[in-house]
């Protein structure tokens, strides 16, 4: 995200980080911040209570950070990284969402993705769908 050159210089990068992508990346940034802070807090204070759930929080945080940075950067490599990160995010939120609903006993500890992101207004569920749609619209070689 700090890579100013990558974020604004080349035309292809601008198309992905520009327009609606601007807002998309901003929301990703907020979730990267929120998920990282939350995972850090959980792991620092009560990791022993539910190592699996809190590791999952950390994984979610990493996915959001990678998605934010790769969406903001120009070039085909960053594009591929975005597709992978956003896909993992979608699979993660759906899997964790389903598991937390079907088997609440096994997932008693909240993560960003619990209940399909219920604690965050379901934004975690909508975000990867919008992300993939945006990546499809701005795919390399389209113009």
């Amino acid at each position: 995200m700090t890579d100013r050159r990558g974020a604004v210089s080349d035309a292809r990068g601008r198309s992905r980080a520009g327009g609606p992508g601007r807002l998309l990346i901003a929301v990703y940034g907020v979730f990267a911040l929120a998920a990282t802070a939350r995972a850090a807090f959980q792991i620092a204070t009560k990791f022993g209570e539910a190592p699996l759930a809190y590791l999952l929080s950390a994984v979610a945080a990493v996915v959001y950070v990678v998605a934010t940075v790769s969406l903001a950067r120009a070039g085909t490599r960053a594009y591929r990284v975005s597709v992978v990160a956003v896909t993992i995010e979608l699979v993660g939120v759906v899997t964790v969402g389903l598991l937390s609903v079907l088997d609440a006993q096994a997932f008693p500890h909240e993560t960003v993705w619990s209940g399909f992101g219920r604690g965050y207004g379901f934004v975690p569920l909508v975000l990867p769908i919008l992300g993939l749609a945006w990546l499809y619209r701005t795919r390399p070689g389209r113009d």
Binding site: R4, A7, V8, R14, A17, G18, G19, P20, G21, R22, L23, I25, A26, V27, G29, V30
Partner: peptide, 20 residues
Amino acid sequence: GAFWWAILEKTRWSNFVLAA
């Protein structure tokens, strides 16, 4: 952060960023 991200592009989408 929102201000920094918004002023790098002067389109209406940057106002959505500020709203966020």
